[in-house]
Design a protein around this nucleic acid. Structure first.
Lengths: 331, 331
DNA sequence: GTGAAAGCGCTAACAG
DNA sequence: CTGTTAGCGCTTTCAC
């Protein structure tokens, strides 16, 4: 690490709406109205004010605006882990949607930690017009506490009376199992963490149901955290059952499975079959992983829309966005 | 997509500092001082005010605070692309560092688009106490324009007079080439985009220099965008040179290289060698990729520190954080 | 040490 | 249609 000195930069002071008003020879309220209620003004006045604003490079002070109106023009989005490739596209879509409605978006990452999640939610709830909790791990009472402070929308979690968007993998898991069952499958295993967390529960339940439906042996293999390394190691030591369909929590786990099994000399789809989930990795692998494609961008858009609707007083709504089975060579 | 109606949630109204003051039987100014200048108060008064605040669940209204003091307690961080695994750890570390200094952090993603980057910077610059531009693609004059509005720190870019943190891969590339040169290498190729963008330039320059230093043939293979698919396709059609060392812009490109070459029947390190960069993928692959590990968390911490220092009036500084060569089976 | 009063930049009644 | 006035919640001189 090396350091080297440099110069300092002077700071300009931004024009206020009073400056704009003066330049346009109107009062501050008229200038304000030109932006917020232009229909109340003569068209010529609006034009003149906006021209003056442009000339001065005026931008609203959002803090003053929020203080005055009592509502912020920012939304908050709390995600468990930006490093999980599931979230960045969701975040990005949320940001674009928010912007298109002239809101900005606070993105916060909770490190998959319920306590920190709650802390972030509490702190930010004071300053935003609404909050989106993506796959939250907080307790239901804590979420309700937050929702009392600020309009809140859930992604991948359901709580009575609250808006939510579920990104559902279950139907696609059913499709994948049907596909796998075109060959002989000896049983089904679900590989994920033990968490009581909606995405995990939904996927595990469906895996179990599919096994029951087909009278296949079912088992659940547990990971302390659903990481590549944990999955790979688990495969190294686990009881190998030829012809089993392994349903992994996500693509990261699935790749750990493939590599761990490979190290033991077992290869999909010859010796076993494996399904991933999310379809969000920046690289492909060989053999191409069968997975579930989840449209998180749509989910994010809907979440923002529901949030804004709720902030306007609309009722809570529940929406499900359904993933689709995406073929690969591992089934 | 299915919808179902639900109930609405009532909203509580937050206590103000006046409420706290009343509860503690002091004036608003005293209550304020208890938080901002406790040393001016009797210890007992501070305790009493804070107790009252806790009892009421008081949280400062950041908008009012920012308006009153003229400075926000939020920082902004603009990254080109959250979906690139290089950035989430950086973002996360920046967030933690900011929080530890009682700042919150606005994260914005520019979609690798210079115009949008500028727009985001302009809009947010009005509302934050400082701005970090990570690997910006904006023109230098545009960056300077932003820096006139708000304290700004650059990551992976250098501009005279501005603070910057460079996450340098070059020394590690030199190490990697040395390692590869323990075997016979027939030449060096750099595979990246054509962009005049610091990370790309730094890596390409070093690759070229290493070739010159060893009197090896050098070539540059161009990608329109540095994606997995582009790299894979390029490998399919490119002029294959046995024993060449391929230095990829990042790990994503490197994996495209490995897969494209694999499809042509060429395998590293037997037929060619390949180096990636970033070491941030959530999965490993076989053969394990030789890469450059970049400590983006440290870089982010330093960036936040420099930013806060600059906001306090310190001079601009330049810091380099150096990546290290990480062994793999592809060299 | 503490309180009273003014003001940050903006919006929203209320007049006219 | 537009200006005047008051006030959002907080900090900060300035008195006491």
């Amino acid at each position: 690490m090396s350091r080297r000195a440099g110069a300092r930069t002077p700071r300009a002071t931004s024009p206020t709406i009073a400056d704009v008003a003066a330049a346009a020879k109107v009062s501050a309220s008229t200038a304000s109205r030109a932006f917020n209620h232009p229909h109340l003004l003569r068209e010529e006045t609006v034009t003149r004010v906006k021209a003056a604003a442009d000339a001065l490079g005026f931008r609203h002070n959002q803090h003053a605006k929020a203080l005055s109106t009592g509502r912020s023009s920012a939304l908050g989005l709390i995600v468990p882990d930006l490093s999980n490739p599931f979230f960045p596209p969701l975040v990005h879509a949320a940001q674009l949607t928010a912007e298109s409605q002239r809101y900005s978006l606070y993105i916060l990452s909770s490190e998959r930690n319920a306590a920190r999640e709650r802390q972030l939610a509490t702190v930010v709830s004071r300053d935003v017009a609404g909050l989106i909790l993506a796959s939250p791990r907080m307790s239901t009472p804590h979420i309700q506490e937050v929702a009392e402070q600020v309009p809140t929308v859930l992604i991948n979690r359901q709580i009575r009376g609250m808006s939510s968007v579920l990104v559902s993998a279950a139907p696609a898991i059913t499709d994948a199992v049907a596909k796998a069952a075109e060959h002989k499958i000896a049983g089904i295993a679900y590989i994920g963490s033990d968490e009581q967390w909606w995405p995990n529960i939904e996927r595990e339940s469906r895996a179990r149901e599919e096994a029951a439906k087909r009278s296949l042996p079912y088992r659940r293999l547990r990971l302390s955290e659903p990481t590549y390394e944990n999955a790979r190691k688990l495969m190294l030591s686990m009881d190998y059952r030829p012809g089993e369909l392994l349903i992994a929590f996500d693509d990261i786990v699935a790749h750990g499975v493939v590599d761990g099994m490979g190290a033991r000399g077992h290869h999909a789809p010859r010796d076993y079959r494996v399904l991933g989930c999310d379809d969000a990795l920046p690289i492909n692998t060989h053999p191409a992983l069968a997975t579930v494609h989840l449209d998180t961008r749509t989910a994010a858009r809907i979440a923002v829309d529901l949030l804004l609707a709720q902030a306007r007083g609309d009722e809570a709504q529940n929406v499900a966005v359904t993933g689709v089975y995406r073929r690969g060579q591992t089934i």
